[in-house]
Design a protein around this nucleic acid. Sequence first.
DNA 1: ACGAGCGATGTAAACGATTACATCACCGGT
DNA 2: ACCGGTGATGTAATCGTTTACATCGCTCGT
Lengths: 351, 351
Amino acid sequence: MAVQSKASVKDVAKLAGVSVATVSRVLNDSATVSEQNRARVLAAVERLGYRRNAVARSLRTDATGTIGLVIGDILNPFFTELARAVEDEARMAGYAVVIGNADERPGRQDDYVRTLLERRVDGLLLCPTAELTPLVRDTVESGTPVVFLDRTLHGLDVPTFRVDGADAIDELVGHLLALGRRRPAFVSGPAILSTGQERTDAFSCALARRGLPVRPEYLEEGDFQAASGRAALARLLDLPEPPDAVVAGDNLMALGALDEIHARGLSIPGDIALASYDDVPWFIHLDPPLTAIAQPVQELGRRAVRALTERVAGREVETVTLRARLVVRGSCGEPQEHPRYGRHNEGSVPA
Amino acid sequence: MAVQSKASVKDVAKLAGVSVATVSRVLNDSATVSEQNRARVLAAVERLGYRRNAVARSLRTDATGTIGLVIGDILNPFFTELARAVEDEARMAGYAVVIGNADERPGRQDDYVRTLLERRVDGLLLCPTAELTPLVRDTVESGTPVVFLDRTLHGLDVPTFRVDGADAIDELVGHLLALGRRRPAFVSGPAILSTGQERTDAFSCALARRGLPVRPEYLEEGDFQAASGRAALARLLDLPEPPDAVVAGDNLMALGALDEIHARGLSIPGDIALASYDDVPWFIHLDPPLTAIAQPVQELGRRAVRALTERVAGREVETVTLRARLVVRGSCGEPQEHPRYGRHNEGSVPA
DNA sequence: ACGAGCGATGTAAACGATTACATCACCGGT
DNA sequence: ACCGGTGATGTAATCGTTTACATCGCTCGT
């Protein structure tokens, strides 16, 4: 029969006939309290509908039990899945997560870092959206526990949890060539982001290693959002000699690419092969299913949280790099045994 | 050249040669301060890298500048888009958002409500995941500003922002019948949720209104997640007389349905028609593109936030119901003029 | 029988901000 | 020259916890 919201330890203490210290002690069971008093306190808590004020508690203990997570784009399934993993792991460790959505805009990232810091999060998981800003540098140097996630920034000694897709991209390029494609293009993310630059580099290297020319007009740069993927594809297709294969740098740009390809009435892989860095559940339902590079997102998120809690506890942690893997489907040609249906019963969820 | 993290108003005051009151005054410009002192304070702030402690501030002012948002499932694009809208609007109003992911599990919702309340959010946006729990009742009755979002709970006087899809569902059923389908089935969300129950009811009503029998074996119940959609479809297809059309109660169950349909090698709409309540960007890229019911998610989220801030300011607000609309594509038959490509240049993003 | 030690409790000082209230200097009107 | 008013500032109380320290009875070992 909770009565009101504004009960404080003082009220509880009064009702239970003990001191505030005793109340606090049973609430945190930080010290021994007689059975009788414990029962009284608990009863008073119940009766008043008392709910501890985490704000006051945080002020006193200098810990909020909260970690901040700044992601690139909340509409991007990759970050969504990442956020989900982070949240799960954090809650297991007793932390709440405050998510900040930078929306791939450099300015917003700092806005969020600022408010998160003001709110005194115990640690920060950051997917850096821009080059190194003074704020981020100060934050790191002032000793706030920070872990970079997915992306990294150079020139700063911060543990980073990321996925290296170089091998998978190399394998993908091999796959493309084996299927007779000779003019593959790449739609990259912003070169300013590590994930933009690295994937482009890996692509160029893979080409070079196989003796193919790296044609600059086949290296488009988008911003990891769908519209830019569509625009990039439009430019590529308007080239005098358009590419015969396109790799999108993330799943949203792949979606945009699909928009443009379908709008032009082109067929995949007949007219053009398409593959995506990032795999999402619905790719298998396209016709043909989309070949993609899958990242171990769950593991990435969970391990980053574990690392951050270590750092919060004052321990050092190492940078970790996980590996992506190529998932061949039909969108670059070939694997069309049974055009789409019932391959090995692949589905977004188990049957 | 910010030096350390632990500067407080006291430090700033000392360095600037003024009192803490003056510092606070310039920080909030709450009262007139001489130009000279203002400059000194600002300089000291800069020099110390002072960052106000929002925790202490909240304790004193009894306001956190934070609202809580408890959603059903962070992996569901519907909620993701909702979260995005909520965040945008909230930040414009000067609020930060703490997201809680109930993961469609009744228990988790209360967990989150509890921690959000402990953390003293100024208001709560709740997509109720279960029936009315004592905690939610207490919260509302204790005067905490609460607004229900997407879903509602009966027996409680809380403003609710939701979408009514009854008309759209009725229209969809009409569409199905017009295309010759006579045995349409519905995969519902949990009957315990308003969005589960309402959509099922609307479907049944639409059938009844048109003189079609409502066959109980065609009314499946899932949990708004993909796996349940797949399972439901398996059961439906195993029926002695399977349905010739299926409407999924949300986009994830539609995805699961696709899994099962494709795994069995069935074709859409040849073998079975499929439509989804909820529209997501990639539906247009299926072959044929998926007919769906689109909800005004952005508007829903933004208006709910505005309502909540009103409530926080102590004003009353009304419940709002928006309307969904049917988007006919090809997955139920017919609209296959140009089977898929280049219809009216539909795409997930503008060209 | 006495002091050490321990368990249970209470008192009061933090934590870092905001703000009501008091103070003080100064200005202009009469 | 005096008084009221106003603008700029400082002092100290306060928000709701946690916790260091003090206190007070007991019990137990010798």
